[in-house]
């Protein structure tokens, strides 16, 4: 929960001239048109942009969920472009965590089992102290034996956050994590993500279309038409909204 200062300038993930092209010929669509970006370790980065701007595609490519058409993607020092399914699985086991908008938990498992699932799938033992820390942080101590159907939406999403954190990945990718939540639960989840960056030096990349959510980040990257068009450091919700409005006009 210290030593984050020393690594502050290191890169957790980066994209080098990444292109993502769908279709061929006339029907060709450039979802990403040569995007290069570096995401610093221990930072909370938000990716924003209007629908169809390529923000989700960029995140999927960075996380190794989607193959790029051209260019290279790195997690830490290792290149993930061209990895086999096995290599990508290993990457997901050790270096990457996910938080999705919905369908985040297995309905058959308890909250605790869901949280520990990435570790048990790869046959690793949880670090009890770290597990306790994570549980305390998300405030789920008394909900561990419940099944997802017995938890509220906000609680479910906090379980998902805990699951992403518990294996201490290099990067956590969050895809609209508050998209399905009411504003109070959304704020809880966001502060929790914010705190884990601040307290544990966790790197988080979040895709969102909500300026308010983006204001929790250290840095906001704006995408439009498959290009990075702008960025903000230490944003406020108003500043983000302002940039978005300008973007909308420009498009």
């Amino acid at each position: 929960m210290t030593a984050s200062v020393a690594t502050r300038t290191e890169v957790a993930a980066k994209a080098v001239d990444v292109w993502k092209i769908y279709g061929t010929g006339e029907a060709q669509v450039h979802a990403l048109g040569g995007v290069s970006v570096e995401l610093e370790k221990g930072h909370f980065t938000a990716i924003m942009g209007p629908s169809g701007s390529g923000k989700s595609t960029l995140m999927h490519c960075l996380a190794g969920l989607d193959a790029v058409s051209r260019g290279e993607v790195y997690i830490g020092d290792s290149k993930i472009t061209g990895l086999s399914d096995r290599g990508l699985t290993n990457l997901r086991r050790t270096k990457v965590g996910f938080i999705f908008q919905q369908f985040n938990l297995l309905p058959t498992l308890t909250a605790e089992e869901n949280i520990l699932l990435p570790l048990s799938i790869s046959g690793r033992k949880p670090d009890q102290a770290w597990f306790d820390t994570v549980i305390e942080t998300v405030g789920l101590r008394d909900r561990l034996k419940h099944r997802p159907s017995q938890l509220s939406g906000g609680q479910q999403q906090r379980v998902a956050c805990a699951r992403a954190l518990v294996s201490r990945p290099e990067v956590i990718f969050a895809d609209e994590p508050t998209g399905n939540l009411d504003s109070r639960s959304g704020a809880e989840v966001l502060s929790f993500l914010r705190n884990s960056v601040r307290d544990f030096g966790q790197t988080i990349v979040m895709v969102t279309h909500d300026p308010n959510a983006a204001s929790y980040a250290d840095r906001v990257i704006f995408l439009a038409d498959g290009h990075i068009v702008d960025e903000l450091h230490a944003p406020t919700a108003d500043a983000v909204l302002d940039r978005l409005k300008r973007l909308d006009k420009a498009v």
Binding site: L65, T89, R92, R93, G97, F100, L106, L117, P118, I121
Partner: peptide, 9 residues
């Protein structure tokens, strides 16, 4: 989801 959090084929 399971594949995303590291389950092998």
């Amino acid at each position: 989801l399971l594949r995303a959090i590291g389950m092998r084929r």
